[in-house]
Design a binder for these strands. Structure first.
Lengths: 340, 340
DNA sequence: GTGAAAGCGCTAACAA
DNA sequence: TTGTTAGCGCTTTCAC
């Protein structure tokens, strides 16, 4: 079913049918209604390619996701999708497996398919690559920091403040030796948190001991291995992990070494993943506004898509704050109480 | 940059350039190389829409996902994507929030965007709707059963056998009263498991008591509420849950009622979600081959895409088997031993 | 208010 | 082996 057949059926020219589709106000009401009815009846849908060839607009956005098996990333994705759907856009979700080669390839794909804009979550790419895309006329928004990239519209979380708050808690609870297990990614955020950790300890006159600072893989296994080493070397009273996954692994390791969480070693994580209140003891953690990050990111993008000039304005950077979720694993008995 | 400019730069006609792109063997090596070099230099990419207008092939497939926050679905998705990527296809992932209206809308979108095929995971749609799509020439593959739909190429899991095996284990371990918490979705699979449950009890001469059979929401909360009721009414010695989420909730409820898992009530789940060996006690469960489901599903689809005649052949249905993961929660002490 | 026709960028049949 | 050209389905300018 194509426009020609509709035109013939209505006894008009293709131009008139096209007008009904795109500028109905320019068509006489009577002809318009007649044509609309035929379109309905025949379930005519304009050909996507033919339209694209003329418009170069696809009502599609691309979303780069570091790793789809991680449900925290998917929560952000859901935020993006919610906004997109409401705007009548479709979202191309791309799983890049934390690999910048795959990420580049997907960007290419998205450009080929003429998406109207791209959102990158914790991008592994370099600034110059992204700049090139944007200069091609496809707006870009960054959600979350992996590399230290400026100059784009972006949404970030104040991870440093979040980490600092948790370390301060530990100190307040009376812990004198505090370890940190920090993940290798997202790079920038992990660095920020490590920095926060050091600053708070210094502020409070606590000596910084390198044996309590350990870089690990941002996985359960990474946390397990890192904690096992750290604890075996003489355990700190508390451990802060830069992700919940790391914290889970750490808790497992502590238990395996015959010690108890939080009595022997308190633990806190970062992210408030869904299973944080299922593990035993329930994990104290820093909650991130994932869904909101997605929503704000998408809004930034649609601002750019809908107003072409904005792409040349000074980029906006939105910073969101974290929240503490105090549960049993950090050893603070008074503030516990959450069911799900 | 378009084909005309390349042609001019190379001093040939557009047809020749097009040939280099699509049938390079029909171009004299010298001309071909010359043109290829220019294409490289100018980073020329054929226009997506113009190509589509001629080919009506997009090298894109659609993937309907019930709910992206559930990482088990995303494991299937990853299987699909792995195959697609290898075939040079891009995957459109669509999150339908377990809602058949959204699902229909996305199918429309996918058709508009001319995907070459669609994979539906646990589709909520009716058979006739899907038939219509396939008759439009877009092949369809089903992964997992929600509705009872025949007549399509599909990948399913023998859930019934999986459930039966676990119930048999319980009986073998000496449990005389066994409850089941079955989720509302996926519908068909849950029904199968309930049927398996009844059959095994009958086979073993165990009376079926309706108070031990409870339909719940397929969520942690659902499991919690269902188990609370069941256990408060006089607990069974063991509970089988048709999903891990339900099992987590059940374990929480049992603990909240002051009883111990597995000593007072043994628990087993279904799915082997990532956190099953993080909860305390670690959850005994039935492992499903999610990744494989995705891979097989994708292969079925590409068979259909690549060989148009196959769409009229008798559909193939692949049935995969489950595996048991015996951990602490079921109370069988001897077979425990897993770290991650 | 409507129609004829050019053109979007590409492919492929046909001709040379 | 290469070029010319029609045509894919649609939008839009220009006439009427």
């Amino acid at each position: 079913m194509n426009i020609k057949q509709i035109a013939k059926a209505a006894g008009v020219s293709v131009a008139t049918v096209s007008r009904v589709l795109n500028h109905p106000e320019n068509v006489a009401p009577k002809t318009r209604e007649k044509i609309q009815k035929i379109i309905e009846d025949k379930e005519y849908k304009p050909n996507w390619f033919a339209q694209g060839l003329n418009f170069n607009r696809t009502k599609t956005i691309g979303l780069i996701i570091p790793y789809i098996l991680n449900s925290t990333y998917m929560e952000i994705a859901k935020g993006v999708e919610d906004v997109a759907l409401q705007k009548g856009y479709t979202t191309f979700m791309c799983n890049v497996e934390k690999n910048n080669r795959i990420e580049s390839e997907y960007i290419e794909q998205l450009l080929t398919r003429k998406v109207d804009g791209i959102i990158l979550m914790f991008s592994f790419l370099q600034e110059e690559n992204l700049k090139a895309v944007q200069e091609d006329g496809v707006p870009i928004v960054l959600i979350g920091e992996n590399k230290d990239i400026k100059g784009f519209n972006s949404v970030r979380v104040d991870c440093k403040a979040g980490a600092e708050g948790m370390i301060r808690n530990f100190i307040e609870y009376g812990h004198k030796t505090i370890g940190i297990l920090y993940g290798s990614d997202p790079e920038q955020e992990s660095r920020d948190m490590l920095e926060g950790y050091r600053e708070v300890l210094e502020e409070n006159g606590i000596a910084i001991e390198e044996k309590y600072i350990k870089a690990v893989d941002n996985t359960i296994e990474g946390g397990y291995l890192g904690a096992k080493k750290m604890v075996a070397d003489g355990p700190p009273q508390a451990i802060f992990a830069t992700s919940d996954d790391i914290a889970y692994g750490a808790m497992d390791a502590i238990k395996d070494l015959g010690m108890k969480v939080p009595d022997d070693v308190a633990v806190a994580g970062f992210g408030n993943a869904r299973m944080s209140n299922l593990v035993e003891p329930k994990l104290t953690t820093v909650e991130l506004p994932f869904h909101k990050m997605g929503i704000y990111g998408a809004r930034l993008l649609f601002d750019l898509i809908e107003d072409e000039d904005k792409i040349n304005e000074k980029p906006r950077q939105i910073t969101l704050q974290t929240k503490q979720r105090i549960r049993k694993s950090c050893g603070h008995k008074e503030r516990i109480g959450e069911m799900f």
